[in-house]
Structures are given as C-alpha cells and as structure tokens.
C-alpha cells in the first residue's frame, strides 16, 4: 500500500550549506571578542572601553575595567558595568582578534 518512493535525498531539495568557509557571522565575532578589549559605542555617541566579560542575545553587555569616554575625554571609570543592549550602536575590537 505504501508504495510511494522514499523521500529524495536532501541534496535534491536544497544544497547543503557550504562548509564554514567564512566565519564572519555576528555570533562568531562575539565568540572571538569575549575576554578582549573592546570599544562599545552607544547611539548617544558615548564610548565605553573595557574588557568584554560577556553578552546576551539582546546585546546587553558586561564590561570590566571600563572607561567612559565622552568627546574623547574619560568621564568615568567602573570596575564592572552592565550596558543595556538597546543603547548599543556597535562593539568594536580594540586589540587584535
């Protein structure tokens, strides 16, 4: 009764994803940058420079040894800082990855 052919092998429908040749995705970037010195710039233009402890899917960020920079001047220092992700414009590596 069930004489339908078996489902085609997957390569007929969609080609398998190419091997991870370029690992440039945001997730990969974040894996590589944890524990490194980073610059976090907020939409307001304020920068936070410190060591990236960790982050989550909302781009909430925990930084260590943080310096707050406004217009190129250090305006505050924090041992630890939690930055709410909605304020984040970018996270930039400040040392070689």
């Amino acid at each position: 009764m069930d004489d339908s052919p078996p489902p085609p092998p997957p390569e007929n429908s969609t080609p398998p994803p190419p091997p991870q040749s370029h690992t440039g995705s945001p997730t990969d970037f974040l894996k590589g940058v944890v524990g490194k010195r980073v610059i976090v710039r907020l939409n307001s233009g304020v920068d936070y420079r410190g060591i990236l402890s960790c982050l989550d899917g909302y781009m909430n960020i925990a930084l260590e040894q943080t310096e707050e920079h406004v217009n190129g001047r250090v305006t505050n220092r924090y041992g630890d800082a939690f930055i709410r992700g909605n304020n984040v414009l970018y996270i930039s590596a400040a040392e070689p990855l």
């Binding site: 440039g24 400040a94 990855l97």
Partner: peptide, 27 residues
C-alpha cells in the same frame, strides 16, 4: 553586521568626523 577595516562618519554641523575601527559588530 560584522565589518572589518571600518571608517565611521559622524555628520555634524562642523563637518564629517571620521573614526577608524578594526573588526566591529554593528547593531
């Protein structure tokens, strides 16, 4: 987006302010 060899331009009344950045995750 993850970008490399980045230039940031802030357009201000005083003109374009340029900042060079290494690998960067842009929200």
């Amino acid at each position: 987006m993850v970008l490399e060899d980045v230039t940031e331009y802030e357009i201000t009344p005083q003109g374009k302010k340029k900042t060079s950045l290494a690998q960067t995750l842009l929200n």
